[in-house]
Design a protein around this nucleic acid. Structure first.
Lengths: 343, 343
DNA sequence: TACAAAATGACCAGCGCTGTCATAAAGTTA
DNA sequence: TAACTTTATGACAGCGCTGGTCATTTTGTA
């Protein structure tokens, strides 16, 4: 019922110290021994006692996840991925909801890390995009992994997991182009989120590649919210030459746009195609369901945690360019159709 | 930077053990001593080391939150409340997403509790409504608090926090009645969630009180989803004598109903009033925003955690009837209007 | 066969706290 | 005020593990 390291050592026929070595993958252990120990652990369902480990070792065996994101689905997905990775590696996850805009946020993060002696931190937007946080963390010598929007691994951002919004947006835009649309508008998300900028860039790139010039009236600033979608779309649909398709920076905006179009008795997708981004449950709670880009948040989070573990513990000081890049995938549903398909 | 119990003891001029006593509010400590120690703690910004406490004590200082709920907003809110309570009391929160319908769920929960030596568990639906979980937990002698739907504290369910869906539904229905509606339909949630039954009961009670008999065609079974709302409303609106108002069992269903009505060019709220339940972000992401019942999930969660702490630690073996009851409050927005107000 | 290198074990201290039990202070009674 | 009970406090071991230091065994290599 309570399996300790002693039991494992006995079962594997090695010393307690060797078991410890295996658990912390210290060097100088024969592969055969490692296997023996691992097997014993498995058979006994051994789970190291986190409290004891934390207490004994200087570094702790828990990582932190700070969040401040209005999108609950995003948070839950991230959390799920982190939790999975933690379970697998015998770590614990400390979650810390907070307010990114509070003035003392940097100190708050530092306190959190120091008090809980965290092994590391996973940062998602907006925290991953706050240089002051990264600096503070570096200065107190704490490992962290940032999940950020970006397409190409850059040598100076080693501890990052990239989400290639650019390419995904490029693909989505191509989908619209292939349906024959050329009058495509773009509803931006919050300016301070780099994801919005990346998506816009991908959008523009796709247009440019087809030799379509970007109509500045078709690029509407906004924020990641339903209201913003309503407003933006209303504005667009009042234009003398309306767009035939709208690329919304995320699903919420798209839902808002869809709503606005309906108010004006515009049929979706026959008269107007709309795409979202994220594949959040929102995208399935509209009618018609939204064509969108699927972001595998859980997987991304898992990969971030794994990266963190690799940095944190011996065996992998390889602070080199293992920067996973995730490209959200196009998910075609019913909110898009060939241009002029109003039957 | 790292304050230990020693420092506090020294500062307060007492033994380390006495400080420990104060922290755990054990009996037999003079008030004067308590004050001295508390002051020392404050001045030093002392934070007990959770790992050490967990290791040393038989019971741990962490509680668990198991969830399996498709509604991310609900989970996030609960989590937030639990976290707040935990911070306040120096506990840690262990979160454990899982699948309530998996066959080994009971064993899984037991393993979780035993392995992490949890001090207690907070159970929300669906777990709080699974008798086998409660039994298993009782049998291994673990404290837990269930958040369930119910209106009156009952002596046999001591460890519960009640959410009075009945009364809230009663009030919402009254709101509709006061607007002059008498043809009111009800879109049910999942049958196995007792909340749905409670809400329906409250709805019926309100009608009965006004001497309105319940039209069985107006009570549509369904589930807590957008689709279900679409389907149910479509069915209702095809009836020869349509309802003038729809009570949806939650906001998602309401959003679906709203959607369906729009498809049929029915103006909301002029031709049809719709109410939701929960005050989830959904209810603000529709147009018009939904009249709904606000469920203070964070507060409910906090209160559940507090209840758990009280049970768990000395000072309060009072396993008596402190059963907080929360009544979701009516929140009037724009999806309801007086009957026949189509101008 | 000899010898260096690698793998493992034995042992101990100690992380910061709690539990147990012994002891000191305070309160009560006659 | 002595004798005794109750209440308040302290001393000490130990929770399960890591990290260090050496000693010892096993393995690989010349």
């Amino acid at each position: 019922m309570k399996v300790t390291i002693h039991d494992v050592a006995a079962k594997a026929g090695v010393s307690i110290k060797t078991v410890s070595r295996v658990m912390n993958n210290e060097p100088s252990v024969k592969q055969a021994t490692i296997d023996k120990v691992n097997q014993a652990m498995q058979e006994l369902h051994y789970q190291p006692n986190a409290a004891a480990r934390n207490l004994a070792s200087t570094k702790s065996y828990s990582i932190g996840y700070i969040y401040d994101n209005p999108n609950a689905y995003y948070v839950i997905d991230m959390q799920r991925g982190l939790l999975d990775a933690c379970r697998k590696h015998g770590y614990e996850l400390l979650i810390h909801p907070t307010n990114a805009k509070s003035s003392g946020i940097v100190q708050e993060v530092i306190d959190l890390v120091q008090h809980s002696r965290l092994a590391g931190l996973v940062l998602t937007p907006p925290f991953s995009e706050m240089p002051e946080i990264a600096e503070a963390l570096s200065s107190i010598n704490v490992d962290f992994v940032r999940i950020i929007s970006g397409s190409t691994p850059s040598p100076k951002q080693t501890n990052c997991v990239l989400v290639d919004d650019f390419t995904a947006a490029f693909k989505i835009t191509n989908h619209l182009l292939e349906l024959g649309h050329s009058q495509i508008a773009f509803l931006c998300g919050d300016e301070e989120h780099s994801s919005s900028g990346e998506r816009l860039a991908g959008f523009k790139a796709a247009l440019t590649k087809r030799g379509i010039e970007t109509n500045s009236k078709f690029i509407v600033p906004g924020s990641y919210s339903f209201e913003s979608g309503v407003k933006g779309a209303t504005q667009l649909l009042a234009l003398p030459n309306k767009p035939t398709a709208i690329f919304a920076c995320n699903d919420e905006i798209a839902a808002g746009a869809l709503f606005s179009a309906r108010l004006q008795h515009i049929e979706i997708p026959q008269q107007l195609s709309i795409v979202g981004f994220e594949n959040s449950p929102f995208s399935r709670q509209t009618w018609p369901p939204l064509t969108t880009a699927h972001q595998p948040n859980s997987t991304i989070a898992q990969s971030a945690a794994e990266l963190l573990f690799k940095h944190t513990r011996p065996g992998g000081q390889s602070h080199t360019e293992d920067q996973p890049v995730f490209i959200p995938e196009l998910l075609v549903r019913e909110s898009t159709a060939p241009v002029g398909s109003e039957s």
